[in-house]
Computed example of a mutant assay.
Amino acid sequence: MIVLVLSVILVLVLGGCACVWWAARGGPRWARAVAVVTLAAAELVSAASRTGRKSGSGSDADSDD
């Protein structure tokens, strides 16, 4: 079951990347819309990753003192 879920996520990511590439080259309106959603999701994941690293590195720095 987990393999199926991960496969679907992989297909969605690859499709989103293809739409970003296509939209950058003047693709149809729906591809541009998918590209915007893909880039927004990437920004959210990036922001969440940065927040996680900040809190993790802060606790490591406190424990070294």
Results as ranks from 00 to 15, higher is better:
residue 59 S to F: 09
residue 16 G to I: 00
residue 20 V to P: 01
residue 11 V to T: 12
residue 41 A to S: 13
residue 10 L to R: 14
residue 58 G to E: 12
residue 7 S to G: 14
residue 3 V to F: 08
residue 37 V to L: 12
residue 32 R to N: 03
residue 39 L to F: 00
residue 45 V to W: 10
residue 53 R to D: 10
residue 3 V to C: 06
residue 3 V to S: 09
residue 37 V to I: 03
residue 9 I to L: 13
residue 5 V to T: 10
residue 47 A to C: 09
residue 15 G to V: 02
residue 18 A to W: 00
residue 44 L to P: 15
residue 19 C to F: 06
residue 46 S to Q: 14
residue 31 A to C: 10
residue 1 M to F: 15
residue 1 M to A: 15
residue 50 R to I: 00
residue 24 A to N: 15
residue 31 A to G: 05
residue 49 S to T: 04
residue 53 R to Q: 09
residue 2 I to G: 11
residue 38 T to D: 03
residue 57 S to W: 15
residue 36 V to W: 02
residue 20 V to T: 01
residue 5 V to G: 02
residue 7 S to I: 11
residue 43 E to C: 12
residue 31 A to H: 08
residue 63 S to Y: 00
residue 16 G to M: 01
residue 51 T to R: 07
residue 12 L to E: 08
residue 30 W to G: 00
residue 48 A to F: 04
residue 65 D to S: 10
residue 9 I to M: 13
residue 28 P to A: 02
residue 40 A to M: 01
residue 54 K to N: 07
residue 24 A to W: 09
residue 19 C to Y: 00
residue 7 S to F: 01
residue 3 V to T: 12
residue 21 W to M: 15
residue 18 A to S: 14
residue 25 R to I: 04
residue 6 L to A: 05
residue 54 K to D: 11
residue 2 I to Y: 08
residue 28 P to D: 11
residue 9 I to P: 10
residue 45 V to I: 04
residue 16 G to V: 01
residue 55 S to C: 01
residue 63 S to Q: 07
residue 12 L to V: 06
residue 53 R to G: 01
residue 28 P to N: 10
residue 63 S to M: 03
residue 8 V to W: 00
residue 26 G to W: 14
residue 44 L to G: 14
residue 14 L to F: 00
residue 59 S to T: 14
residue 20 V to K: 10
residue 5 V to R: 13
residue 34 V to C: 11
residue 26 G to P: 05
residue 20 V to A: 03
residue 34 V to D: 05
residue 17 C to I: 06
residue 8 V to G: 05
residue 59 S to K: 10
residue 52 G to A: 04
residue 28 P to F: 07
residue 41 A to V: 02
residue 1 M to D: 11
residue 16 G to K: 02
residue 13 V to S: 09
residue 50 R to T: 06
residue 26 G to A: 04
residue 55 S to D: 09
residue 22 W to K: 12
residue 15 G to R: 02
residue 28 P to Q: 07
residue 65 D to N: 10
residue 21 W to H: 14
residue 57 S to Q: 12
residue 27 G to L: 02
residue 20 V to L: 01
residue 64 D to Q: 03
residue 29 R to K: 14
residue 5 V to K: 15
residue 4 L to V: 13
residue 52 G to I: 01
residue 29 R to M: 03
residue 35 A to D: 02
residue 4 L to I: 08
residue 25 R to S: 05
residue 46 S to Y: 15
residue 23 A to R: 15
residue 32 R to L: 01
residue 56 G to S: 03
residue 14 L to K: 06
residue 17 C to H: 06
residue 55 S to G: 05
residue 35 A to W: 00
residue 10 L to A: 10
residue 35 A to Y: 02
residue 43 E to R: 09
residue 33 A to T: 07
residue 32 R to G: 07
residue 50 R to M: 00
residue 63 S to F: 05
residue 3 V to N: 14
residue 56 G to P: 01
residue 10 L to H: 14
